[in-house]
Amino acid sequence: MERRLAPAVAGRGAQSVDVPTRFGLATREVDGDWRDYVESLDGPAVKLRTFVTEERPKSILSFNRSPDIFFDRSVNAYRGCEHGCVYCFARPTHAYHDLSPGLDFETRLFAKPNAAELLRATLAKSNYRPRPIAMGTNTDPYQPIERRYRITREVLEVCFDARHPVTITTKSDRVCDDIDLLAEMARMRLVAVAISVTSLDPLLSAKLEPRAASPSKRLSALEKLAEAGVPTHCSVAPVIPAITDEFMEEIVQRAAANGVGSVGWIPLRLPHEVAPLFREWLSVHFPERGDKVMSIVRSIRGGKDNDPDFFTRLRPTGVWADMFRARFRLACKRAGIGKNTFELDCTRFRPPETGGQMRLL
């Protein structure tokens, strides 16, 4: 009997809301007759609206002690991400709030309008000691709603006023909206920007990362930032076996040609609820290739869908992993580019003025 595949959800990465979670999130029941009736009238692809809830947290600076990542503190202006990258390792965080790591993660967003105010108060404390703040570690600081809220811009202005170093990771060319401020910060060695480029195929990107900037826009943004003197890093991430790995060499070449100072790669990670979401995505978009993809993923993760352990979670093992490393190393050698460490300056730090005012000079 021929298997009938579910239709793709238009403009979204996840294909459903009902994803098994660790927190007993209730399964959402939809009457089958009702669904059939709606699809007979409107067609199977339902365009979902995005909802944004404003929240007022009491703190904005998060600290971590992970020994295998380069930062120990971060700011996340938003929760959830409209980019809808199906592989996003941050999706499980929505389950903590009784929301689905699937479609809820990309349609039920939270914005923190008081983020800059909270950060200013934190940096002004007498016992605060500066180290680079990472932005974009959980959800993208330049996702589409940033154009309306401008929270990321406000946070950067606080950091500039305090001469506090920042690193930014994004998949959006919207980062160039702040290129004036980033260029000023770069002159003081206060900022570095990384942009993830997953593939060079806009059609594939539209399936993997439906509301992120196209690959060409991301590469163009890297070029503009580099021209403005902003330290830039191109992250070929994630590398998805048998889906995106074919673009690895050309992305490295294009990044080098655009004046990018550093490149790196990160293998696909499928923690917690991301694994079933990704499997579902494969069944919709690449049904003939799904078993092969997951077989390779398991081969680099010790026979499991995911390896959560420190160090090994970012350093896969096995024949396939060794091949990817060799390919990437050779691509970097041919392009004359490598992975650099951008040394940001913490010595310029000055506690910001409180009361909502910034210095004139």
Rank of each mutant, 00 (worst) to 15 (best):
L208R: 02
G102T: 10
N64P: 00
V236L: 15
T198I: 15
D104L: 03
Y78T: 03
D42H: 14
A212H: 04
S196L: 07
G264W: 03
P231S: 06
L270M: 08
A237V: 09
R313V: 12
E117V: 06
R28D: 01
R350P: 00
A111V: 14
R49A: 15
M323T: 13
G102H: 08
D173G: 01
E146N: 09
S62D: 13
G261T: 07
E82W: 01
E55L: 11
R325H: 14
R150C: 09
R22L: 15
T93A: 14
Y96A: 13
Y96W: 12
R108W: 07
S205R: 11
R129F: 10
W34Y: 13
T232A: 03
T312F: 02
E2W: 02
E82G: 13
H97D: 13
M185H: 04
C346E: 15
P276Q: 04
T139A: 13
S172D: 03
L99P: 05
R187C: 04
R218F: 11
F342P: 04
V166H: 07
S220W: 12
M248N: 01
G136P: 05
E106R: 06
G32H: 05
L99F: 13
H94G: 02
T347W: 03
T50R: 13
R35N: 02
E246W: 09
A331Q: 02
L225D: 07
A8F: 03
D36G: 00
V175K: 10
P113K: 11
K339I: 00
A45K: 15
I133L: 11
N127C: 03
K125H: 09
G302F: 10
V175T: 12
L99G: 04
E250H: 06
L109Q: 07
R147C: 01
L41A: 10
V9M: 01
A162F: 13
C176G: 01
R279Q: 12
L181A: 02
I179N: 03
A331M: 03
G80F: 11
R254Q: 14
R187T: 00
G84A: 02
V263M: 05
L268H: 01
E54N: 08
P276I: 06
S62M: 05
T170I: 07
S220K: 13
A212N: 06
L270H: 06
C176W: 00
E223G: 01
